[in-house]
Design a protein around this nucleic acid. Structure first.
Lengths: 208, 208
DNA sequence: AGTGTTGCGCTACGGTGTAGACGCTACAGT
DNA sequence: ACTGTAGCGTCTACACCGTAGCGCAACACT
């Protein structure tokens, strides 16, 4: 059910998911779907919850919080890349719904990370702030990474491959001159660098 | 035109924007709109560009990059809070379009920040990474902040006000115990704290 | 005056989410 | 055994969507 919805989204994007199409995929009357989710919005929330349920934060008694954060971040990135079409839903869906009304599965990572951080020595308030900084960074990174798409993989010249020749030279000199760097984008590495910064910041906050 | 679209979105959310409704608002045939934007997607891109055009990065010859980043971040937050319904579009719309094909106005901040960072001493590659970290953080923060919505402002008990009593105590003890902190969310302050971390990280990267 | 071109308004098509009516089935009460 | 009724799966129907396509009107040019 939710799995089918996810499959459709993965295959053809969010817009491709319609009640009728899903009915067809399941070979059921589209109206039957309303037994499982009482509206399409709820169904979308369900899909987000399903995907997010793949992110489990290991329980470590606060031993090595830094490493847990790193591993979790990598896992989050993997999941996002595995379901790129779901990412817009993931970052967008909670906006309408106040925290406490969100699907419970969605709150699991928050709860577990709070647990981890508090165990690591943060006071509750600090843990919350740390969580926000960390999760915000993660979302930001994933959004960034998904935007970096090579346009025309056939072309060898970076400028052309990325379509950058379209940009007026006079107005966007810096972007154009970074063609090589843009073409060589390495998401995994960039994530690590970002993590270094964020975790260093958290460390300072913890000890200072 | 774009202004009207923005007004409709601000008033009633993205879903409330339809070609027909816009036609009505402008007292024109809905089909006329296709003279200005050749599809609804393009129109949405236009709205994003319009909003983003309010974010101008001051030109400072690299004198005080740190302060520029701080001011820009605050401005970005202001804009996002002024147009909360546009934020989903802002973070979501670029996902389908490779960087170079995006509306030019959208690339302005990237170009200008690169300029700023390079002027501040970053090498081009480092500037790009710094930009990504910074902008990713900003998007993350704004998404976070927009999620923190008080549910029932009448209620005085934080737990009830936020609807947190709905959460199973045994499964979500930490979230529940943070009710007071959640209720007292201060976006401006949280932005500053995040900026401290990010900028400290960038500094280290610059000097080390 | 005749003709080509351009732009505008409208209609219509194929889709959407979902409310509500419709009939079947299966059980409860007599 | 018969009937009332409650539930449930199905279908129809409504109001709306984005936009392709068409015909008319007005203008420019010969």
């Amino acid at each position: 059910m939710l799995e089918t919805a996810l499959a459709l989204i993965d295959a053809d994007g969010v817009d491709a998911l319609s009640m009728r199409r899903m009915g067809k995929a399941l070979d059921r009357d589209p109206m039957r779907l309303y037994r499982f989710a009482s509206s399409k919005d709820e169904l979308l929330d369900g899909v987000v919850e399903l995907v997010l349920s793949e992110l489990r934060i290991p329980h470590t008694d606060g031993a090595d919080w830094e490493e847990v954060l790193r591993r979790t971040a990598r896992r989050f990135r993997e999941i996002a890349l595995a379901h790129p079409h779901v990412v817009p839903l993931m970052v967008t869906r909670p906006l309408g719904t106040p925290l406490a009304l969100r699907p419970l599965g969605t709150l699991r990572p928050l709860e577990d990370l709070l647990e981890l951080l508090i165990g690591a020595g943060f006071d509750p308030k600090g843990a919350l702030h740390a969580y926000r900084l960390y999760m915000g960074f993660l979302q930001g990174h994933v959004l960034n990474e998904l935007q970096e798409r090579v346009t025309d993989p056939e072309e060898t010249d970076d400028l052309l491959r990325l379509g950058l020749h379209r940009l007026p030279v006079r107005e966007f000199p810096r972007i154009r001159s970074l063609a090589a760097e843009l073409a060589a984008y390495d998401g995994a590495r960039e994530l690590e660098e970002g993590l270094d910064v964020v975790i260093a910041g958290l460390h300072r906050q913890l000890t200072g």
